[in-house]
Design a protein around this nucleic acid. Structure first.
Length: 280
DNA sequence: AAGCAGCCCAACCGCATGTAA
DNA sequence: TTTACATGCGGTTGGGCTGCT
């Protein structure tokens, strides 16, 4: 079954946005807020498709965007997050205040990939380039199908999906407590140790507690996984809900804080509850 | 100065997912 | 339960910019 186009393509502009179009979009959203992207172009007098308007707003016009170069801290945080989440750019962006998924994706492809390759690290697997995969290797983030699991959490460095269909074992905690110098260290443990060496903790312990939310905060519990969705609020887009406030769990899952990111003391995600900030 | 190649990034496209009817 | 629609995500593209010859 083919899908109908999202808009009437014959009468829409494409390509770069003009200043006038930008201003129209900004003015409209200031007056009416985000949401209902399909009808927005017509209402705002723009000859653009709704998706294009949404993208332009999210990636370029939003007032809370941080422009300019990525800092060294952001670089390292992106690398850490990518090693955990894979190409889940929206999840990564949710943990970098003021950065968009598109921006991070571009930055990854143009800078960080090269940087990791120069360090002799495979950007996809975060393993040494000469590493030969074995049958017992743990699953890399990019192999995870997050969509099949509505909400998962990585707590205490270990988790199971769907009754042991597969398992990730990140042993940072046990390494922390155990004797890493022992000759009995496994290959994975060695790699984790290397990873720990590569990413100094800025004086704090690395806590891998991580929760991954779906786009909408649905009402249902997932009985097959036994993992409940985050809240029971209205599942409409956040901007549609005038009573929207940051979910209660948000501060508990702020990964930039959990990772010991130095700037976390001032993490705007944890403090700011306006609707432009996504949960972090 | 002109031509070329490579890089960067804004924008597009197709697909997946959630939801309302 | 099914279907159509709206939205969001990730991969890809292409035009502009920059540096090199």
């Amino acid at each position: 079954m083919g899908r109908s186009p999202c808009c009437e393509k014959a009468h829409t502009n494409k390509g770069a946005w003009t200043k006038e179009e930008d201003q129209r979009l900004i003015d409209y959203i200031r007056l009416h807020g985000e949401g209902c992207w399909r009808s927005l172009p017509k209402a705002a007098g723009l000859l653009r498709c709704g998706k294009s308007c949404r993208l332009r707003w999210i990636n370029y016009l939003r007032p809370d965007l941080k422009r300019g170069n990525f800092t060294q801290q952001e670089d390292e945080l992106i690398i850490k997050l990518h090693s955990l989440l894979g190409n889940k750019w929206s999840l990564i962006a949710a943990r970098l205040p003021g950065r968009t998924d598109n921006e991070i994706k571009n930055y990854w492809n143009t800078h960080i990939k090269r940087k990791l390759l120069s360090r002799g690290i495979d950007p996809q697997t975060h393993r040494p380039l000469d590493h030969q995969p074995t049958a017992t290797n743990t699953i890399t983030p990019t192999q995870l199908d997050f969509r099949s699991v509505p909400r998962v959490s990585i707590a205490n460095s270990s988790l199971d999906f769907k009754s042991n269909e597969f398992q990730i074992k990140a042993k940072a905690e046990s390494l922390e407590e155990g004797d890493s110098s022992s000759s009995g260290m496994t290959t994975d443990e060695e790699q984790l140790q290397q990873c720990k060496d590569k990413f100094p903790r800025n004086g704090q312990d690395l806590n891998l507690e991580l929760s991954i939310g779906t786009r909408s905060f649905g009402k249902k519990n997932n009985s097959t996984t036994g993992i409940s969705t985050a809240n029971s609020a209205d599942s409409k887009p956040l901007s549609h809900n005038k009573n929207f406030r940051l979910p209660e769990y948000a501060s508990s899952i702020c990964l930039c804080c959990q990772l010991g990111f130095q700037a976390s003391e001032n993490c705007s995600n944890c403090q700011n509850t306006n609707e432009f900030n996504r949960y972090c």
